[in-house]
Design a protein around this nucleic acid. Structure first.
Length: 463
RNA sequence: GACCCUAUCGUCUAGAGGCCUAGGACAACACCCUUUCACGGUGUGAACCGGGGUUCGACUCCCCGUAGGGUCGCCA
């Protein structure tokens, strides 16, 4: 049996971090077992589904590098198939028409809530041996309901939560087709998983309660029941349910915020799954190690600090060309010409050990492209008369020394000796004069990469 | 309210009855490195929700509490 997993988002918004993890796990499981990963867009909610959201999901998947083997399939394009199955079920008696209006249902629910019982359909249109059904009211188009078994329990061995058992008595006859004839979620999912030969349904925790209904329909259809694995929620940084106010929820926002996809992937992989003490690993390793047994069954709180640490790690190990390219794109978006100054690749090499994200990298590279003027306070604090005098001595040496790090370092040391100063006393004013800020990587390396002409020109403004 | 799920350092987690004096990572703190700020290195503090069982022995198994969460749509 080949493993077939799927990711089935509804296109009502962007791909959020929880969905991304679900997709990652389903993808990894298929990869791990040499199976297929299927992408299915569940767009039967015409009111809320948008083509923009479909695109956003596709973009998110692509950014993460989670490629699907089949699809994307769109449920709206499978309407004839759903209707065919509904007709079959109607004919077989496993589904029936119900003429109860939405208003009546609403009233029923309110009464049940008031009596503090579980709100559920009372089965008034359910055909039963020896039961007289009401006369269908004129002018009401009926919904179609699934005839759920009354007795027994439906149980499954959940891939992450273990055995779950729910009594059929807890389940009511849910609607599989609306009054306008369109099928509903719980029904489409079943038909799709069946038709697409899905063997492992890896999805969010919030679907646990749908599972027994889906299993019952599958059984009524004579279909094979797949293995279900329900992933717990991801909570926000503050331990509350993830929502817009948590800032970065959309996967693409992480791109925007300067995260590398491999960092996000590695972080997500470790959120709710583990492989002993392994913290940092490649997707190849992840695919090799991934299993359902080591998925945690409790909800996990998102921790931006750990993501930041991983991102910094991946930036450190990324090649400078790539980093320079990423930073250049960000600088360009700020209206800065990335080609206008020092070679960015060399600057990126200097900074990659020191930044947490690509936006910080762009910040760091900016003063190498354009002159950044220090604030008045900074000038007053660092570019004192004594400092300026030392910079003047240094300038003369830099005008003629060999242009490589060691020679620049030597010029710096000679300056210190000549002025009777300590390294920071010259290095910090020099940083302020050159970059507009008192901190930077090793100053000799910065001077070298900035170039002689630029260094002298920038110094001349202060001496 | 009913049903379902969950419970180890602040956070992510290891842990399949003795390997646990509970391990790793992020964060915190201290020290070291240092040409500033970082990086890096070393180290320290920090947890089994409570109560009952089962067992020679429970973080691990069972029950009951408690606390969180999810679901009860002609949404997905």
């Amino acid at each position: 049996m080949t493993v077939r997993t799927r990711f089935a988002p509804s296109p009502t918004g962007y791909l959020h971090i929880g969905g991304a993890r679900t997709a990652l796990f389903a993808w990894a499981y298929a990869r791990r077992h040499g199976g297929k990963f299927i992408l299915r867009i569940e767009d039967t909610d015409v009111e809320r589904s948008t083509p923009e959201a479909v695109q956003a999901i596709l973009d998110g998947m692509q950014w993460l590098g989670l490629a699907h083997d089949e699809g994307p399939f769109y449920q709206m394009q499978r309407m004839p198939r759903y209707k065919e199955v509904i007709a079959q079920m109607l004919a077989a008696g496993s589904a029936y028409y119900c003429y109860t209006s939405a208003e009546e249902l609403e009233k029923l629910r309110a009464e049940q809530m008031a009596k503090k019982v579980k709100p559920r359909y009372d089965g008034r249109w359910r055909p039963e041996a020896g039961k007289a059904l009401p006369t269908p009211p004129a002018g009401v188009s009926p919904v179609v309901r699934f005839r759920n078994p009354v007795d027994g329990v439906v149980a499954w061995n959940d891939g992450v939560k273990g055995r779950i058992e729910i009594a059929n008595a807890e389940l009511d006859d849910f609607i599989i087709a609306r009054a306008d004839g369109t099928p509903t979620y719980n029904f489409c999912v079943v038909v799709d998983d069946w038709d697409m030969g899905i063997t492992h349904v890896i999805r969010g925790d919030d679907h646990v309660n749908n599972t027994p209904r889906q299993i019952n329909v599958l059984k009524a259809l004579g279909a094979q029941v797949p293995l279900y694995a329900h992933l717990s929620m991801i909570l926000g940084d503050d331990g509350t349910k993830l929502s817009k106010r948590h800032g970065a929820v959309s996967v693409m926002q992480y791109d925007e915020d300067g995260y590398l996809p491999e960092a996000v992937l590695n972080y997500l992989a470790r959120l709710g799954w583990s492989h002993g003490d392994e913290e940092v690993f490649t997707m190849e390793q992840f695919v090799q190690w991934f299993d359902l047994d080591h998925i945690t069954s409790s909800a996990a709180q998102f921790n931006t600090e750990k993501l930041n640490w991983l991102n910094a790690h991946y930036i450190k190990s990324a090649v400078a060309t790539r980093l320079a390219g990423e930073a250049a794109a960000r600088l360009a978006r700020r209206g800065i010409d990335p080609e206008s100054g020092a070679p960015l690749e060399r600057v990126a090499e200097l900074y990659k050990e020191r930044v947490t994200n690509l936006n910080e990298l762009a910040d760091a590279l900016e003063p190498f492209c354009v002159v950044v003027h220090p604030s008045a306070e900074m000038i007053a604090a660092h570019l004192t008369d004594a400092a300026r005098a030392a910079l003047k001595v240094l300038r003369e040496k830099l005008a003629s020394c060999a242009w490589e790090k060691a020679a620049i370092g030597a010029a710096l040391k000679e300056t210190l000796a000549a002025c009777g100063m300590k390294m920071p006393q010259v290095a910090i004013p020099l940083r302020v004069a050159l970059l507009g800020q008192p901190q930077s990587p090793a100053i000799d390396a910065v001077v070298e990469v900035l170039g002689r002409d630029e260094v002298l020109a920038r110094l001349d403004r202060y001496i």
